[in-house]
Simulated assay, not measured.
Amino acid sequence: MSTKDVDSAAQRRTPEPLVERILDVKRIYHEPDVQRFARARQILERSPSAERIEVPSHQAIPGLYGNAGNVEDWVRTKSEVLVLGEKKSLSARRNERSSDWIAPSTSNGCAMACSYCYVPRRKGYANPITVFANIEKILGYLERHAGRQGPKTPNQCDPVDWVYDIGENGDCSVDATVSDNVADLVALFARLPNAKATFATKLVNRGLLDYDPRGGTRVRFSLMPAETSKVVDVRTSRVAERIAAIDDFVDAGYEVHLNFSPVIVHETWLADWSELFEQIAEGTSERTKAQLAAEIIFLTHNEGLHEVNLGWHPKGEDLLWRPDLQQQKTSESGQLNVRYKTPWKARWVDQLVELLAEKLPTCRVRYAF
């Protein structure tokens, strides 16, 4: 075999990293006159061959949102469609779980397709990435908001800084492949004296290692046992790859926490989590382990999303939809959710927290429910 043939064979055996193939943008829906924003022009220039379709609003796109037929193209839509608009209403919302505040969104939607994700419930059968181009206005709002905060009373979010979640409705690691919005946010919080950004992610984007966060951004790597992740974490980085990246992000100046979410109960779930905790302990440095903290969130599922998922990924519902273990609860918005039965869940939460303390004793639990 020639050297050229060997090189070609090696390339075939080494798949392109997910971060480089997660998007193949073919259509961009955009609001009128969005190109007045430099960020919009940047995004459009990165996909010069994409079809451009003007729409009155990023929130109402006929044929995209609310179209039940889109369930057949669930993953293709996430890969091939972008929406580009302006974030007109800016506000920071109190949270006090993953953060003190939920920052105004610079995007929503995601190119990944986790079958338990709550965002599709709001958008109706499709939730490709919507990017907001007026980033300067959002950055200015956040800087002024942080400047108005008084001294921080230590809480489980952080003992020193006011924490702002910048990725509530998407994944910033994916967003960073679309535009410089995430880079601008990381740079902002690197210089704010009293505030810290945070986001959860299931994608290893090593491009973020080139930023200079200076401790001002907390990345929360979302983890669950690998075999479960293979079923429900669709189009995400492998769990082993996420664990392998943790030390590198700490070394690059990020604070790194862990997001054990969602915890999905099945016949071997506790043994699987024990193995995951051991993998984290063995795969991270002492420096990393000393700064670890975790949030633990058991699964909440939704009847409407269950019906949608049956149309594109029914295998995942074998894990997510367990009437024998779950009870119904109507949400504040009137949707029918299912959660694990209260007496059992309380015991399971305690079991998982105790197991984490045994296997990864330096990792404190910020909250668990």
Rank of each mutant, 00 (worst) to 15 (best):
S274M: 01
G207M: 05
P213Q: 11
V234I: 15
V174K: 01
G253R: 06
A190S: 14
N259L: 11
Q279W: 01
S222V: 14
A195H: 05
A200W: 00
S179I: 08
A226R: 14
V178P: 05
F277G: 09
A187H: 06
S179N: 10
T284C: 15
D251S: 12
W273I: 11
Q279V: 00
L292C: 04
V250I: 14
N205H: 12
R220M: 14
Y211Q: 13
R206M: 04
R191H: 10
P262M: 11
D247G: 03
L258G: 02
D180V: 02
S229I: 08
L292S: 02
V174W: 02
Y254A: 07
P225Y: 04
A294K: 09
E278I: 08
Y254P: 07
T177P: 02
T198A: 05
D248S: 14
P213S: 08
R242K: 15
T288W: 07
T228Y: 01
A240P: 00
D251C: 01
L188E: 08
D251G: 02
L270I: 13
F277T: 09
A240C: 03
A200Y: 00
R214L: 11
V174H: 01
V219P: 04
V182C: 05
V204L: 12
E275M: 10
A252P: 06
P193A: 04
Y211E: 14
A294S: 15
Y211K: 03
V239R: 00
L223Y: 03
A245E: 02
R206P: 00
Y211R: 11
L203A: 01
D233N: 12
P262H: 10
L270E: 10
V204D: 12
T228S: 06
A183E: 14
T268G: 02
L209T: 06
A190I: 08
A281C: 02
G207T: 09
R218C: 14
R191V: 12
A183D: 12
S229H: 07
D251A: 15
K202W: 03
F199L: 05
V182L: 13
L276Y: 02
H266F: 09
T201A: 02
G207F: 03
N194M: 05
R235Y: 07
F260T: 01
G216C: 04
E282N: 11
S179M: 05
D180W: 02
R191F: 03
T284F: 02
G283F: 01
T198K: 12
D272M: 07
T201L: 13
A245K: 03
A271Y: 01
V178C: 03
V231R: 13
P193G: 07
A176E: 11
G215K: 11
A197H: 11
E255P: 00
L203K: 01
V234H: 09
S222H: 08
A197S: 13
V219D: 02
W273K: 09
H266Q: 12
V263T: 11
V265F: 04
A197Q: 05
V256F: 04
F221V: 15
Y254F: 15
F249A: 09
R214F: 03
T288I: 10
L208N: 08
S222T: 15
P193F: 06
R287G: 06
P193K: 08
P225I: 05
